[in-house]
């Protein structure tokens, strides 16, 4: 009856061997292919670096002007524009300008990556139940696995730096856009699709002419969530060498600098709020046909 009280687990030495073999296998893999993979991501690094440089090197008044202009185009709300302007002035005044620009750069690049991968993925999921059944569990893992755990293989493969940080941010931030694209397209009114079918629209005409436009509000909620998650990941990504607002937060945590931590933390919050409000307002304006067509 021994097995009844003590779980029949594998022996310690077997377990050690098992872990070792996994570790060695991955180390071998990263030795053999690490460089190739790094080269593969080289263009991404260049893209990210030039983006960051652009943000940091452009004189601050131009950046502020550009940002409030975008906020206006996106939201058409004078309140949001004033809030954005004040926020960025405060951020700069408290000496966080450069870090904020780095964070902005990585967030924008991460969002761009997530959208360009996530939306097609969501479309593919909406098209086929098999694809959906395959991808949903992967998304579940990506959303629930502690982010530190997937940092390990990423760092083993690519070392410490911007690209592994960016990949970590993307892994964390991509699920909402994929899920909500899929959901949005699946929820499109069957009658409208039937009508498109009856007039002989082909798959692409239905996708771009009917499904995506009608799913846009949901897709946009996904974009919004993706940006929010990317911002939340900035602190953890700083552990593997991503510059920006996360780094001071990390220092503040390990050295108990309350003010530093609060300031940078709040700067992240402010960025998040601005992104959120602007994208939400933009999403609402895109569906003007829903409010009797009035702007």
């Amino acid at each position: 009856m021994d097995w009844f009280f003590k779980f029949p687990d594998m022996s310690r030495s077997d377990l050690r061997e098992f872990k070792k073999s996994v570790d060695f296998a991955f180390t071998d893999f990263s030795r053999t292919y690490g460089e190739g993979i790094e080269n593969f991501f080289e263009p991404l690094l260049m893209f990210l670096v030039s983006f960051e440089k652009f943000f940091i090197n452009t004189p601050w008044p131009l950046i502020v002007l550009g940002i409030i202009l975008l906020a206006w185009i996106g939201s058409r709300s004078i309140l949001i524009v004033i809030g954005t302007f004040l926020s960025f002035m405060l951020i700069g005044y408290f000496g966080m300008w450069e870090d904020t620009m780095s964070t902005l750069a990585i967030i924008l690049v991460a969002t761009f990556l997530c959208i360009s991968i996530g939306i097609p993925l969501g479309v593919a999921m909406a098209r086929s139940n098999k694809v959906q059944a395959t991808i949903v569990p992967i998304l579940d893992v990506m959303q629930t696995i502690p982010s530190f755990v997937y940092l390990i293989p990423v760092v083993m493969l690519l070392g410490i730096g911007k690209v592994p940080g960016l990949i970590a941010v993307c892994i964390y931030a991509i699920p909402p856009i994929v899920r909500l694209t899929n959901l949005g397209i699946r929820l499109v009114d069957k009658d409208a699709l039937e009508a498109a079918d009856s007039f002989g629209a082909n798959y692409w005409q239905k996708l771009f002419g009917v499904q995506i436009p009608l799913a846009l509000p949901t897709i946009f909620a996904g974009v919004n969530q993706t940006i929010m998650m990317a911002l939340a990941m900035v602190v953890i990504a700083s552990m593997i060498g991503v510059k920006g607002l996360g780094l001071p937060v990390l220092q503040a945590v390990s050295n108990q600098y309350l003010a530093l931590g609060l300031m940078n933390g709040l700067a992240i919050v402010v960025l998040a709020i601005i992104f959120d409000r602007v994208t939400q307002k933009f999403g609402l304006r895109m569906q003007k046909y829903r409010n009797d067509g009035k702007d």
């Binding site: 009114d189 009658d191 409208a192 039937e194 009508a195 498109a196 079918d197 009856s198 007039f199 002989g200 002419g209 009917v210 436009p213 009608l214 569906q287 046909y289 829903r290």
Partner: peptide
């Protein structure tokens, strides 16, 4: 065939709202 020979009117109109 659907493009050229037949067209359809639906009970719930099925217009494209956008």
């Amino acid at each position: 065939f659907r493009q050229n020979n037949m067209s359809m009117v639906f009970q719930k109109f099925a217009l494209f709202p956008h």
